[in-house]
Design a protein around this nucleic acid. Sequence first.
DNA 1: GTCTATACCCCGATAGAC
DNA 2: GTCTATCGGGGTATAGAC
Lengths: 195, 195
Amino acid sequence: MARTTGSRATITGPLIRDKARCLFARQGYAAVSMRQIAAAVGVQVGTLYAYLPDKQALLADLLESHMQDLLAAWSDDPQADPLARLERFVRFHIDFSIDHADAVFLSYMELRNLTPDNFARIAALRGRYESALESILRDGIASGTMRPEDPKLTTLALIAMLTGVTNWYREGGRLDRARIAQIYWGLARGAVGAA
Amino acid sequence: MARTTGSRATITGPLIRDKARCLFARQGYAAVSMRQIAAAVGVQVGTLYAYLPDKQALLADLLESHMQDLLAAWSDDPQADPLARLERFVRFHIDFSIDHADAVFLSYMELRNLTPDNFARIAALRGRYESALESILRDGIASGTMRPEDPKLTTLALIAMLTGVTNWYREGGRLDRARIAQIYWGLARGAVGAA
DNA sequence: GTCTATACCCCGATAGAC
DNA sequence: GTCTATCGGGGTATAGAC
């Protein structure tokens, strides 16, 4: 357990983000102090400021990099069958939400604690993700395989429904991930009128 | 506009709750100070403590009375057609969520800031509300008019979907309330397999 | 890169005058 | 019922030693 300077330097930055993400998700941004984060990381408060300018930047960084990861992880084939694309989207969203539950929870709970410029940047990324689903719905309508009454509202409704999984999912619960994804897919398919 | 002692006394209590609800919903419980609330009400900080023991009690009171109002406002007829009951539930939930947007938003954002005993009491009320929907789904399955794969998960998914309306609804937006309720009802009906 | 120490501010809550 | 004044503590952020 030698404390070489190099190894610590490499690890502290990501560790700050990991601990902050976890604490923010559990207690909320405003309720978590920089002292708490430092204690979780195992350093003193002052050390944090060698890695970030202030607390707000830490939140913005967590939310923005989460949205970037989400957008990078999603890929779509506009040529494929819209219903198959929707199924992929639903399964992807559920899996990603479970795998990154803290980040997902944070990203829709703490938008209001962003400064206006940070909010605008991150809301734009969120809009891009919503558009990904909306385009699937529009293609589904065009091809006659789906009948949602309003693609825009249906997009928001489906994402809210799917993201809700972060509110109650616990590892080792009554339903496993595959089963959960299956059930949500059934709900989504029915909701868009493709049952 | 005489400032009689009596009239002020009657108004200050509810006003504290109104302003606190609004501020908590917009900025989050932890981010709002008692001084901010006092300023919004138009009194000094000390005055607040003539009406409540502490800040936590204010939050708990807002959440508990909201859940009580919600449960009191909902009525169901277990003898009626399950699909008609589901439609009533959907329309009720949308209307109530729009009419009490701040309280609804608060009630699912700030549960984590409750002390354990307050949390337990309020979570139990929430459970009663979820049960109201779940019993409709179970009756629908029994009567063969609905085919949700898992009534418990479907309950949580539908409530998350419907409650999401508080995230984006704005008075005078693209869709009016009746239209929104209609669209959500279409989504819910399809989701439970009753299209 | 991390520590200790500290500046400066605002927090929740209380006491006591009016 | 409301005010003013204040207590004790913890908040973010910085300075400077090592």
